[in-house]
């Protein structure tokens, strides 16, 4: 956790969020991702609504069918280029993980890594279903929150208890609020355990 704040007030704790944008496809091609992604995704890391706003990092992740899947860079977005185990390290350093395009081989791996590390999980499928493997075994049920861009999209997910539709004027603020809620829940649980 990153703690900030002055001496005359209670410390403010900022949730740390890693947004993992899974590369599409299984053939190792680097997708032209930028034009396919919603604006809130690229804005999420720069938006600072308050001192307690989440600290959001974004990485791209590719899981081509090879021995060691890789996090690769999206050249257009100049995002960091990481190896898979570096992704695990990065996941380990945040409280909330947001996987975009989970229904891809890379997305499935990212969801799995996040859950093994007991992270709060947000997913946005962005209408991509390159792989049905994870969805077929209930992968989306592992998400705490499932982000949809519209009510129509939300209907696709039936009774998932964590559906949130980004339909307000400021989707980034909504997103940050979701992260903060998850972070708070984590802290409450941790406090209950410690107490």
């Amino acid at each position: 956790m990153t703690e900030v704040g002055g001496t005359d007030r209670a410390p403010i704790v900022q949730p740390r969020v890693l947004m993992v944008v899974a590369e599409r496809g299984t053939s190792g091609r680097i997708a032209q991702a930028e034009e396919e992604l919603p604006s809130w995704l690229s804005d999420a890391r720069t938006h600072a609504s308050s001192d307690a706003a989440p600290v959001v990092s974004v990485v791209h992740f590719s899981a081509t069918p090879q021995v060691t899947p890789q996090v690769t860079t999206n050249a257009a977005a100049s995002l960091p280029c990481l190896r898979t185990w570096e992704l695990v390290d990065r996941l380990d350093r945040v409280e909330v993980v947001h996987v975009c395009r989970p229904a891809t081989p890379a997305g499935e791996l990212a969801v799995l890594a996040a859950k093994v590390l007991k992270k709060r999980l947000v997913v946005s499928d962005l209408a991509v279903r390159d792989s049905t493997l994870g969805v077929s075994v209930g992968m989306l049920d592992l998400a705490d929150v499932l982000i949809c861009d519209s009510a129509l999209e939300a209907e696709l997910y039936g009774r998932h208890p964590g559906i949130r539709v980004l339909d307000g004027d400021d989707p980034v603020l909504e997103l940050h609020s979701i992260y903060a809620d998850l972070f708070r829940t984590t802290r409450v649980e941790a406090g209950r355990k410690d107490g």
Binding site: L112, K115, G134
Partner: peptide, 24 residues
């Protein structure tokens, strides 16, 4: 239930990668 869900996902993902290794 969550643990079993993670196990099911891990099984699917690991099989895919084990197959990739076997093919390699």
């Amino acid at each position: 239930p969550e643990v079993y869900g993670i196990a099911l996902l891990a099984d699917a993902v690991l099989r895919r990668h084990a197959l990739a290794i076997a093919n390699r």
